[in-house]
């Protein structure tokens, strides 16, 4: 397709001037205004908007997946009965890789996208603050909706407000547990024990203590029922002999 050449005749030029003046005066009289007066009006947001991240502590298995996938390095796991993620909103880029990574659906996105914090310190949201949406003081009284049809686009203002939604889509995953595939290759380094947040790996027969007291020889590990399948030991094992398996 070739772009048409623009004609240079004075008549065309005059026509274009008239077009400009017409359009400007039309807009001055009946404007197609699209501005939303933000703090006083709130837009209706689609449900899948990626906003503030809400944590359900009862579901969290402290698997650290969210912290490890975060491209901006914004998630810090802090100890609070167990390890739970806290998001540093100074760094967060709202890619929601963490929400997609959560194997149990503990993290959920909400449509809250505008947050104001009093200080930089406050932006490092703690796990217990992530349990529910932050309390907000809002000035908005009406909501605005984009009405798009084939004929055009206009804003519809309504004197009602919608609550911010928390959208939790549970992943279709069965519960998993760690298993040792090749016990014969175990180094006996007990890294898996150290890293396990649930103390699910126990030493059945340990005869070496860390204090340097020689008691005996070797150690045997056992993965108990406490295992929730976070997979931390799988990633920690230097010989890669552990793996996650689905259990009934």
């Amino acid at each position: 397709m070739k772009v048409e050449k623009i004609s240079r005749s004075p008549l065309e030029e005059l026509k274009r001037h008239v077009g400009v003046i017409q359009e400007a005066f039309k807009q001055a009289v009946i404007p197609d205004r699209v501005t939303i007066e933000y703090p006083r009006e709130r837009r209706k947001y689609p449900e899948n908007l990626r906003g503030f991240i809400v944590l359900d502590k009862s579901r969290c298995i402290s698997c650290f997946r969210c912290a490890q996938i975060c491209p901006a390095n914004a998630i810090q796991m802090s100890y609070f009965e167990n390890f739970y993620p806290g998001i540093d909103y100074t760094k967060c880029i709202f890619c929601h890789f963490c929400v997609e990574s959560c194997p149990t659906g503990a993290l959920a996105s909400s449509t809250l996208h505008d947050m104001a914090f009093k200080s930089l310190e406050d932006m490092k949201v703690k796990p217990n603050q992530m349990m529910r949406l932050p309390a907000a003081i809002r000035e908005d009284v009406q909501s605005v909706e984009y009405d798009v049809t084939k004929k055009g686009w206009r804003l519809i203002r309504k004197m009602e407000l919608e609550d911010i939604k928390v959208v939790r889509i549970l992943p279709k995953l069965k519960p998993r547990r760690a298993f040792c595939l090749e016990p014969e290759s175990c180094l006996g380094c007990r890294q898996c024990m150290e890293v396990c947040p649930h103390e699910a790996i126990v030493m059945e027969r340990c005869e070496i203590t860390l204090e340097g007291q020689i008691v005996g020889k070797g150690c045997v590990l056992k993965i108990t029922e406490k295992c929730v399948g976070c997979g931390l030991c799988v990633r920690q094992c230097p010989m890669k002999i552990l793996s996650l398996k689905e259990v009934e």
């Binding site: 040792c180 016990p183 027969r205 070496i208 993965i223």
Partner: peptide, 17 residues
């Protein structure tokens, strides 16, 4: 669960390995 065991040589000094 399968049981396994491995042997570590004796320490000669009272230190970590």
């Amino acid at each position: 669960m399968q049981e396994w065991q491995f042997l570590v040589p004796d320490k000669k000094h009272k230190k970590k390995f």
